[in-house]
Amino acid sequence: MQLWQQHRQDPAQAFLNGPASGQLDLPRCREAGFAGGLFAAWVPSPQLDPASRVPDLTIDARFLLEGTQKHADFSPTPALEFARDVTIGMMAFLLRIEAQSQGAVKICRSAQQIREAMQNHALAIVIHIEGAEAIDPDLYLLDVLFQMGLRTLGPVWSRPNIFGHGVPFKFNTSPDTGPGLTDLGVKLVEACNRKHIMVDLSHLNEKGFWQVADISNAPLVASHSNAFSLCAQSRNLTDAQLGAIQQSGGFVGLNFATPFLREDGTRDANTGTGDYLRHLDYLLEKLGEDHVGFGSDYDGASMAPFMKDVSGLPVLINAMREAGYGEALVTKIAHKNWISVLERTWGE
């Protein structure tokens, strides 16, 4: 989204040569030792004009749930056509970045391709969409996106769509915030299972989480979520959810955002590596050392000052070593566990 908003003229060159406006570009990734990750297409929420009461045409009124407009933090759902155009445009940016990179960037569709990219010192990009607003009820676009390279998908962001209900950003509120998947959402999860597309649970509310746990035959993965017991954000995971993820052989990626780390749930700049390690230790206790990694949420959330961009990764890794994390465990958290769960999900 940062490339889409800030570098419409030449997003590929902005990313490849830097400086890009967000928290990631190729020069900074190389300097930080960032090997790759999930690169998300996310569709911004359209706005309503409260003065004129004229609806924004990019909003599909069918998705507006009764009562949701009464909440100040309500985020309207983009219309299908708008979401489709934005999502395909963002994915095209990734395709152009790869094409213009002279081998420095590789879009990876298998775990083996990720390993090969790392061996070749190429940035490994896995295409992800956060919120499936672009996908039609018949799932035709899912086939197209898969052929473009899509390999992971979050059915919802923190707003409702035709597939389900996202969990809002609220402190001292449990993830149990209302209805879960719709019938179309169940259909989408089943289609992702057949195609071996990873289903990301990080923005799904608790009822939707348990629906996926019941119907999915893949490991349960929350790509960027933390422990609710340590930070009572509705976006974080309860002990019961962590237990289900562990039982499925799944994975949780540590979210670097300060409101999901701090015990008080604030965006306080006085957030250090200790807050990160507290959640890592808890997740390791609940899930085991083979099922935890970094989830980051770069370009999507408020970060601690030392994690202002990707250059903060070495700081966190050094803090892990100083706290007694052995090299084998550091390596697992840094990349091996991610590759392993993707391999188990993708089957290749």
Rank of each mutant, 00 (worst) to 15 (best):
A104D: 14
F63I: 04
T68P: 02
Q113S: 08
Q112K: 13
D56Q: 06
L94S: 02
A92T: 14
A92L: 12
M90S: 05
M118N: 08
I97Y: 01
I114H: 01
F74G: 03
A92S: 12
L57C: 09
C108E: 03
A117H: 01
H71S: 04
E98A: 08
V105L: 09
T68F: 09
R96K: 13
L64V: 15
F74V: 09
K70T: 07
Q112Y: 06
A111D: 09
L57R: 15
F74E: 11
D73Q: 08
H71L: 09
Q102P: 02
M118K: 02
R96A: 11
F82K: 06
D60F: 02
R96C: 04
I59Q: 06
R96L: 09
V86F: 10
L95A: 15
A92D: 12
D85I: 12
F93M: 15
E98V: 04
L95V: 11
S110A: 12
I107K: 00
F74T: 07
P76M: 05
H71A: 04
E116F: 06
P78T: 09
L80F: 12
A79K: 00
D56F: 05
T77N: 03
L94V: 06
A104I: 13
D60S: 06
V86H: 07
Q113P: 04
R96N: 10
E81I: 09
Q119Y: 10
Q100C: 10
I97M: 10
G89R: 05
T58R: 15
D85H: 14
A99R: 14
I107G: 00
A83R: 01
H71T: 05
I114Y: 01
I114G: 00
K70P: 01
M91C: 07
F74Y: 15
I59F: 05
C108S: 11
S101C: 09
A104T: 14
S110R: 10
D56G: 02
C108I: 07
I88V: 13
R62G: 09
Q119N: 14
T58D: 11
E116L: 12
M118Y: 02
Q100E: 15
I114P: 00
L80V: 03
I114S: 01
A61G: 14
R115Y: 05
E66L: 06
Q100P: 04
I97A: 03
D85N: 14
M91K: 01
Q112M: 08
